[in-house]
Design a binder for these strands. Sequence first.
DNA 1: CTATCCTCGCTTTTT
DNA 2: GCGAGGATAG
Length: 728
Amino acid sequence: MTESPLVKDLNSAQREAVAAPLGNQLVLAGAGSGKTRVLVHRIAWLMEQQSVSPHQVMAVTFTNKAAREMRERLTHLIGDRLGPRGVHSMWVGTFHGIAHRLLKAHWQEAGLSQNFQIMDSDDQLRLIKRIYQTLALDDSRWPVKQAQWYINNQKDEGLRPAHIDPGHDPFAQTMKLVYEAYEEACENAGLVDFAELLLRSHELWLKNKSLLDHYQRRFVAILVDEFQDTNSVQYAWLRVLAGHACAVTAVGDDDQSIYGWRGAKIENIQQFENDFAPVGVTRLEQNYRSTSTILSAANAVIENNFGRLGKNLWTDGGEGEHIDLFAGFNEQDEARYIVERVQDYLREDGSRARTDCAVLYRSNAQSRILEEAFLRENVPYRIYGGQRFYDRLEIKNALAYLRLISSRQDDAALERVINTPTRGIGAKTIESIRIFARDQGCSLYAAMQAALRNKVFSARAAGALNGFVALIDELEENVAQLTLGEAAELVLEKSGLVEFHRKEKGEKGQARVENLEELVNACRLFEPQDEEVTPLQEFLANAALDAGDGQADEFEDAVQMMTLHSAKGLEFPLVFLAGMEENLFPHKMSLDEPGRLEEERRLCYVGITRAMDKLVISYAESRRMHGNENFNAVSRFIREIPQNLVREVRIQSTVSRPASYSSSSATRQTEVDDFPDLKLGQSVLHPVFGEGTITQFEGRGAGAKVYVNFMREGGKWLALQYAKLEVV
DNA sequence: CTATCCTCGCTTTTT
DNA sequence: GCGAGGATAG
C-alpha cells in the first residue's frame, strides 16, 4: 500500500477503502465510522496516486447540506491543489442538482423549453388538482394526493404512461389518464418536477449516445454517498453514466436505510456488487462517536433484522453511563421529565450547551407537548424540519412573482399570484382565462392578454387584469437593471405582498413580513455561479432545489428537537428518544408488514447511534392520540436492549404512576391505587386550571377524588384517575 | 370577495 | 385534538 500523508491518520479499514485501486468500491460504513472522511480522502487519493484530475470527478449526495459539507471538507483538505475554480471544478452535488445541471446544458436534446422551471411538490399538487377539474374527476373517489403519489412513484421507477398497462383495474386506468394529462400540462407550462429531473436526464443519455459517450469519457471517478437511499431511477442513471470504464465508489449502510417508503431500495447495495463487478468491499466498523454501552444497545436492536449485510460496531472508547429508561404517567409527564433532565444536565457542568441535547421522536405531532414543556420552563429550543423556509406561503407567493417575471408561461406561478394580494380578479374570471388557454393551447398569461384584446371581460375584470399585466411588465423592465436583492425588494413592494401581510392581524403577519425580509436578504447574499442564465433564474432554481433550512436563530444556544428521520447524520452528547411505545414507534402503520417493521427498527438504530455520551429513553403509559386516550404497550425495541445496559429511572417528584397493571387482560386499564405523594395541603399543578392546593380527599383506588383550591379558577372536585395533577 | 364554519386526515421527507 | 383547506353564507 502506498504510504501517503493522506492515509496516515486513518485506521486500517479506512485506509483500505481510501487507497483501494482505481475500480468499483463498496464501502459499508457504520454509523459514526468516519464515512465522509473516507469519501473526501478517497477523492484526494485518486487525484494524488491515480492522477485523476478534479474535473473527472463526480460526487453525489442526497441533500444539499451533505453536498455543502463535502465541498467544504474537500476545500479544506486539498483546496490548494484544485486549481483556480477550486472545488467547483468537480461536480459535487445532489442527484437532482446534477441532473438539473445536465438538463440546463442540453435542454434542446432533452426536449425541454430553454427556461423550464422546477416545480416543487406543492405546485405539483395544485397542478394535479387543476387536471382533475379538466378531466371532471371525482376527488373523493380518487384522492388527489394519491394521484400525486402515484405519478411520483411511477417516475421513481422509471415508468412513463406508455409503459403502464392498467389492465381492468379502474384505479390504474384513472391514474394513467391523470399521469398523461399531467405530462401534457407540464410540457405546456415548461414545468419539471423533482422526479422528472432524474428520469429526463436518464432518458437523455439513453437516446443520445454521443452525449452519453461524452460524459462517460469525462467522468473517471464517481462517488455516491448514502447509497442505501438510492431509488430505481437514480441507480439506473448511475449505471448508465458509469458504463464499464468508470470507477464508482459507493458508500452506504444497509442498517440506516430509512427511506424505503419513498422508493429507496436497499437491494441496490447487493445489486451494485453484481452489476458493477468486480467490486472491492470494505467495512468501516470502528465507531468514533458513542460509548460502548450505547453501541451494544444499537447492535443488539439491529441484530433482530434479517438479511443484513452484517456489521458490528465497536469502539476502543469507554463504557460510559447506563442508558436511562423513564416511564411517564402520560405524555405531559414524559415531556416534563425530559425538560428536567436537560436542566440537570446543564446545571451539572457549566461548560455544557443546550445544543448538546437533542430530543428525537417518531412523528411531528409529538413535538407540541415537548415544546410546551420547554416553553413553561423557559428553556430555549429549536425544532428542525417542519415547514421549510421556501415552503412558507408568503415565500412561495414572492417566488411566484419572480418566476412569472422570468417566465410568462409558468401557469402555476400565475395562478398563485394573479389575485394575491386580492386585486378583484375572482374565481370566475380566472376560470374563463383557463378555458380560453385550453382552447388556444397557450399559457394562461398569453390567454389573458388575448382575451383582453378581444374585450371578453366586464369593465371591472378587464381593469383589474390590465393592472396586473401592467404590474408584471413594469416589474420585468425594472428588475433587469437591478441587483437581485434590489429586484426582490422592488417586487415585494410593488406587488403589495409586504403591505398585504403587514395588515394581517396577529403575530402571524409580523412573522411573514420578517420572512419576506429574510428572502430579500437571501437574494442579496446570493452569488451566481452560472453565466449561461440570469442571476434571477439561477436563484429560482436554487430555491426550488434547496430546503433553505437553518435560516432563523441558527446560532442561538437551544435544545434541538427533531424527528428520527431528520436526525440521520447528526450526533449529540445527550440524546432523548421519546415516545417509545408500540403503535407510535414502531408506528402502527408499519406493524403488518415485516419489511416495514424492519425499517422502523433501523430507524431506532439510527436514533440510538446519534448519542455520544448519554442516551435517555422514555415512554408514556397513557397518551392522547388523535383525541383519544391510548394505553400503548412498551415498544418492542426497548425490550430488545439488553437489561444490563439499562437503568430504570423511578419517578420522584410526580404523582406515582398506577401501581399495577393486569397484564393478562387484553385491554389494559389504568388502576389508581394510591398516590403517596398527594396529601392535604399539597400544592399541585393542573394542565388546564393551573396551580392549586389540595384541601379534601374522598374515596380510594379508582374512585378517589380530591378537592383542589385553584388560585385562578377556585375550588373543584377532580377524579384522581383522570386529572393530570402534578406535585409542585 | 371575505369571513366563518365545517370536514377531513392523521408517519416518516428530500429534492 | 388540531390545523389546513374547502364550502357556504354574507
